[in-house]
Design a protein around this nucleic acid. Structure first.
Lengths: 129, 129
DNA sequence: CCGAATCCCTGATGATACTG
DNA sequence: CAGTATCATCAGGGATTCGG
């Protein structure tokens, strides 16, 4: 680990079982940690559901909207913007009239599904017990 | 999968890559899903940090408080209560004067660290790229 | 030492109306 | 169709005080 403070912090969390955390954990450092940011992202209200729908196949904006009962247009927009900004989702505009926009997982987005599915499996196994 | 609706929902999310999500996802069902609840839990402000500190070793209440810069007494209490109620953390009271209380991970809490560490590793690898 | 009770404030979410 | 803009609401989180 030698690529800057954020990586060091992430590594601390990632390998917490074997590496000692510092005696005093600075909350600023914790807030800035990429791992913290990722779990916060996943914890956001609609992120997980949108990721799962996009894992199935690409979707148009209103297609997602219709498929998710109870989501507001504003929150779907914001959720997709967040995911796009994070590089997990790709936004493609087809210059037709009226415009058609579809959203799909990026390679990063698809690769996130691996640890995410493992976590979900853990929850399922835990329910069973 | 045959152990009730919550399990089915969790399984849907867990195996989203191979199993189709329903045409219309009810937000009530999504909110009730154990996987949703778990990512929300992890996304809460101090949960991850407390889990990591307890992964290192058991801690007394004020020991945690001193070790986490910026956490309020109220939030540490609430965080530990949440984790205890979820079965991830055990609370032990030693009937001394003044009372001593320590917190440690349960077996479930320790087992959660496995998928959690995998997710953290994914974030670290992603940072590197 | 550990925690409950209260007050307060900000940010996240939703409802609604408007636009290229 | 796919958003933006604005206003209203509500819950998460912090500061402070009190109690066993």
């Amino acid at each position: 680990m030698s690529a800057g403070n954020t990586d060091v912090t992430a590594a601390r969390l990632a390998t917490a079982l074997t590496v000692k955390l510092p005696e005093q954990v600075e909350s600023a450092e914790y807030e800035a940690c990429p791992v913290t940011k990722m779990v916060r992202l996943l914890g956001d209200k609609w992120i997980l559901l949108v990721l799962m729908l996009l894992a199935e196949r690409p979707h148009r904006f209103n297609e997602l909207r219709r498929r998710i009962s109870g989501i507001s247009q504003r929150m779907l927009t914001r959720t997709l913007q967040t995911l796009t900004a994070d590089g997990l989702v790709a936004r493609t505009v087809h210059p037709t009239v009226p415009p058609a926009v579809d959203y799909s997982l990026t390679d990063q987005g698809r690769s996130l599904l691996v640890p995410l599915t493992d976590l979900a499996d853990w929850v399922v196994r835990r329910q069973a017990a």
